[in-house]
Computed example of a mutant assay.
Amino acid sequence: MLKPSIFVTRKLPDEIIAPLTEKYEVNMWDKEDVPVPVETLRAHAKKAEALLTMLSDPIDREVLNNAENLKVIANLAVGFDNIDIKAATENGIAICNTPDILTDSTADLTFALLMSTARRIVEAAEFIKNGEWKSWSPLLLAGHDIHHKTIGIVGMGSIGQAVAKRAAGFEMNILYHNRSRKLEAEKQLGAVYCTFEELVIKSDFIVCLTPLTEQTRNLFSRDVFKKMKKTAIFINASRGAVVDENALYDALVEGEIAAAGLDVFVKEPIDVDHPLLNLSNVVAIPHIGSASMATRLGMMKLCVENIQAVLSDKEPTTLVNKLNV
């Protein structure tokens, strides 16, 4: 009797996959740093009972409608905008993600990106490496203070609240905008709920942590950047498509805002000749929000556990689309 088939779309450590190989036929793309070709993904999805996917894998309606045996997709990310959830639900396919386990690591990175951008850390490091440091001077690479400033968090989920906790340690004033009020955060951290427009106008640091939906796509537009303080610093650690990148570039060049720290981009990997990468007031990093060894391994293990649960007719730990599986 043939074992149920599982396809893993990126090379993962053997010890992570080992629990699956005991009961299932596991096929794994053999590249760690190169995405699986779409044609290969579709061919495996057509016959597999489970997929372990990356956030960069496009799982569209065509893939899902032709997946004859597919029962579960475990996505190695908290976001799942790469998957057509409606089509998956219509086809009875469980979608699982990896929330919570990455909250603190992503919050650490988000705040590190904020600090690096504000205090021009990357620029200063390159200044030394390029042999430009000739003497100390009073305003050499002077940046922006973080302490006692106002941070505006757009998207006050678990990661947003974790960032707010870190901001509280810097005695920052915390504003937030979210689909719903977070009363516990207001009580514990002194966070103040406000409209999106109020947040944009009042904040010294605007930190985007909202998921990508049709409502948030291009949320940060030309008009929004014009409403920010000229000294404002914009941080995006959510999804690239929540930002109009052309509008952001113009805002930075024209001095409508002071700087930007970006972990995500509309196209990933971003082209090396992208205009944003030529600006000294942009800190750009390659989507590493949750990239600590412990966190990434934990995310992988959670994906494996979710697959095991669904294929054993049990409820997975982090089910996105609430199927009766």
Score class of each variant (00 low, 15 high):
Leu51Trp: 07
Asn75Phe: 06
Val63Asp: 06
Asp60Val: 04
His44Thr: 09
Ser158Ile: 14
Ile83His: 04
Gly152Arg: 02
Thr103Glu: 00
Pro37Trp: 01
Val154Ile: 08
Lys23Asp: 13
Ile151Val: 09
Asp84Lys: 01
Arg120Met: 10
Ser135Glu: 14
Asn91Gly: 11
Gly143Leu: 04
Glu25Cys: 13
Lys47Val: 15
Ala125Pro: 15
Arg120Val: 11
Ala142Val: 14
Ile153Leu: 10
Val63Leu: 07
Ile101Gly: 01
Ala45Arg: 07
Leu139Gly: 13
Ala87Lys: 09
Val154Phe: 02
Gly143Ile: 06
Leu70Ala: 10
Arg61Tyr: 10
Arg61Cys: 12
Ala67Trp: 04
Asn82Met: 08
Glu32Tyr: 04
Ala118Phe: 02
Ile101Trp: 07
Thr106Gly: 01
Val36Leu: 09
His148Gln: 15
Asp100Ser: 07
Gly79Thr: 01
Glu132Leu: 15
Asp60Arg: 00
Pro37His: 00
Ala45Gln: 00
Val154Lys: 00
Val36Tyr: 09
Val38Glu: 15
Ile101Met: 03
Val26Arg: 03
Met54Glu: 10
Ala48Asp: 05
Asp60Thr: 10
Ile153Cys: 10
Pro35Val: 05
Asp145Ser: 12
Phe80Ala: 10
Leu41Glu: 02
Thr106Trp: 04
Asp100Ile: 07
Ser105Gln: 12
Leu70Ile: 05
His147Gln: 14
Gly131Ile: 00
Asp30Val: 08
Ile93Phe: 08
Ala125Cys: 15
Asp104Arg: 12
Ile95Pro: 01
Glu49Phe: 04
Leu114Phe: 00
Ile95Gly: 06
Thr150Tyr: 02
Thr89Phe: 10
Lys46Tyr: 10
Ser137Trp: 12
Asn82Ile: 03
Asn97Met: 04
Ala112His: 04
Phe80Tyr: 13
Asn130Pro: 13
Trp29Cys: 10
Asp81His: 11
Ala77Leu: 07
Ser105Thr: 13
Thr89Glu: 10
Glu25Gln: 15
Ile151Pro: 04
Thr103Ser: 06
Thr89Ser: 12
Ala107Trp: 03
Lys23Pro: 02
Asn27Phe: 11
Leu70Asn: 07
Asp60Met: 03
Asn69Ala: 03
Leu76Asn: 14
Met28Ile: 05
Leu51Ser: 02
Ile146Val: 05
Ala142Ser: 14
Ala48Pro: 05
Ile73Cys: 00
Gly131Asn: 05
Glu22Phe: 13
Lys23Cys: 09
His144Gly: 14
Leu64Ala: 06
Ile101Glu: 00
